[in-house]
Amino acid sequence: MRLVRYLPAVLVLVVAVLPLAVPWLKIVLTVALAKGLAVLGVVVLLRAGQVSFGHAMFFAASAYSAAFLMQGFAGADLAVLLLAGMVCSGTMGAVIGLFVVRYRYIFFGMLNLAFSMVLYALLEKMFHITGGSDGMAVGRPTYLGLELARTSFETALFYTSLGLAGAACWFVHRFLRSPLGEALSAIRTNETRLEYLGISARWILLIAYVLSAVLAGLGGSIIAVNQGVVTPDLGYWIRSGEFVFIAILGGAGHVLGAFAGALVYELVRFYAAAMAADVWQMILGFVLLGIILFASRGIVGLYRDLAAIAPGPRGHREPLR
């Protein structure tokens, strides 16, 4: 049972090594990491008790920025695309954030949804610029100045995504423990006291909103390069719902849960689609139902319960909380 305590580290190791043993899996895992980054953005906002039903707009905006960059500068580097994607989504997050941070709960969620649908409609209708529903092709960028073959590039992209996911986890974890992060949590519990501490709840939420947009944007750039094509579907409301779904699956409000949820979601989706193509959504639905009914704190909550049952280093049992 002691192994349970090391489960996260073991899983990270397995994810890192798996593509070496099963090369085709790295595409799926890269998609999971890209979505995990976007979900991490949703998790940041969940800390303030706010659910965004439109975060796919940042995912899509960043993906399209990669497509436009590759169209304009064929030899652009992956680092430039990732950076440009983050700047694009961050700027967009700052502008949209100025409006949405004035609202809370269902109004916050719906306003995000509305903005995302505006972007979706623009991407869909501006055919001559965005390619409409056909989308845009994204060429293979150079990797630190090197032109890599497809397989090598996919491997490099996977490990880059893994590294970025790790860095994002670390940063968000630090952020949430900092006074800013604690003030963000305080928006959920007592906004009145926050204001009477001289802290602007809107300003705190705006900072978190921009951070969450940047994270979603980073995921969007990765997915664009990984898939080689971007379509308006990246910004559709179903995608936003998917991010919220994964956040709950992983354990709402937890940093590692974002990636645990994304990995489980992508793997279930992949195998369900392969083995039961017509009913894979139903299988995903049952998985979420199971999580909500039997492990309401998601995968991370499930893990914590297991770790609490497992004997500690001196053999004592910690109480379940």
């Binding site: 940063f171 900092s178 006074p179 604690e182 305080a186 802290i199």
Partner: peptide, 23 residues
């Protein structure tokens, strides 16, 4: 933590890398 958040607000300590506990 309630008091430390008040202290952070007073001193305007918003470093995202410094835990609230370490103020």
């Amino acid at each position: 933590d309630n008091l430390l958040l008040a202290a952070a607000a007073r001193e305007r300590t918003w470093n995202p890398f410094r835990p609230l506990q370490d103020l």
